[in-house]
């Protein structure tokens, strides 16, 4: 459980995070989304007691981080994979962290094996690839078998196999009842991994809702409709457009001559075309990309000051296809 209340951080005159309040619950993967520079890392650092908030508080497992009795046994964090001394071996790196928490040496071997670094345990970690560095960071986070885990952009620069591995790992950790808080600037990644989303832009909360609700709200479906080719194709298209608009659909012409229709089901579009005696060469369902919806949400972050669930005027037309 992570609880932030009115979290604010200013650097001189610049506000990095403003009045941020949220709760990260156990048993779920909570995605922390925002564009680069939106304050995700600053928030993560405040949760971990590295930066002191200008105002507001944040607690982990009920206590401010810096007051935890044995931090690694409560919280594991991957901030950035490069936060290691390159001259030290992976084993020594993990050993010095394990000793801080009073953990036995064999726990180091256990986590090294768990992340698949057993064979390079005694190599200098300065020579590690990005993926190996990320695995080492994850091994460090798992050392104390903590109930709360924070990952800052864990899939950055990983290959598909590595991304799959991290995704599975986070789902597994959450299914064991742990609190998993993962930041990312990729909506598509979070749509696959996270159960719950906290979206920020310019340091302010934009949305705090379940991934399901976000998808339902922001990924409007639409249909692509194309009338028969031929001499009067343009006229047929106009007739169909008029009919569909009259029936309550939202129609936009696409560059390739098809129509993009939302607000009507596919059978309804087919029926209306049939009644109008228009032949259709294409009638296909489509999903608007979540990435687009997310970009709209975060780009508008200046105008929509303290909106809890995203800009209301961007509400897409509901459509069932």
């Amino acid at each position: 459980m992570i609880e932030a209340v009115g979290l604010t951080k200013r650097y001189g005159g610049k506000t990095a995070v403003e009045d941020l309040s949220f709760t990260v619950r156990p048993g779920l993967v909570t995605g922390f989304l925002g564009p680069n520079g939106s304050g995700k890392s600053t928030t993560m650092r405040m949760i971990l007691g590295l930066d002191t908030p200008t105002s507001g508080t944040v607690t982990v497992a009920g206590r401010p981080f810096r007051e935890l009795r044995n931090a690694p046994r409560t919280v594991g964090a991957l901030l950035d994979a490069k936060a290691v001394h390159g001259g030290r071996s992976a084993y020594s790196h993990l050993l010095c962290l394990a000793q801080l928490a009073g953990l036995p040496r064999r726990r180091v071997d256990e986590v090294l094996a768990a992340v698949g670094l057993g064979e390079v345990a005694h190599k200098r970690c300065g020579g590690f690839s990005l993926g190996m560095g990320q695995r080492l960071g994850i091994a460090a986070a798992l050392l104390g078998d903590p109930q709360v885990l924070l990952f800052d952009e864990p899939v950055n620069g990983l290959d598909p196999e590595g991304i799959h591995w991290v995704r599975q790992l986070m789902r597994r950790l959450a299914s064991e009842g742990r609190t998993v808080f993962v930041s990312s600037h990729l909506m598509s990644e979070m749509a696959l991994t996270a159960d719950h989303l906290i979206v920020i832009g310019r340091g302010q909360l934009l949305a705090d809702l379940s991934t399901r609700a976000f998808i339902d709200r922001h990924s409007a479906g639409f249909a692509r409709v194309r009338t028969a080719d031929g001499a009067d194709a343009a006229r047929q298209r106009e007739r169909l457009g008029a009919v569909l608009r009259a029936a309550g659909g939202d129609v936009v012409a696409e560059p390739d001559g098809a129509l993009r229709v939302s607000g009507l089901t596919l059978p309804r579009i087919s029926d209306l075309a049939w009644e109008e005696q228009l032949r259709l060469y294409e009638l296909s369902p489509h999903q608007a990309s979540l990435e687009e919806a997310y970009m709209q949400l975060t780009q508008g972050s200046v105008e929509y000051r303290s909106s809890q669930s995203g800009p209301a005027e961007d509400e897409p037309v509901e459509v069932t296809v």
């Binding site: 971990l48 007691g49 590295l50 810096r66 490069k82 936060a83 290691v84 460090a140």
Partner: peptide
């Protein structure tokens, strides 16, 4: 060397005192 490599953040995350 802890500040230069970023290791200090890892250290203080494991031991905040």
């Amino acid at each position: 060397s802890e500040y230069g490599t970023g290791m200090i953040r890892t250290t203080l995350t494991a031991y905040p005192r």
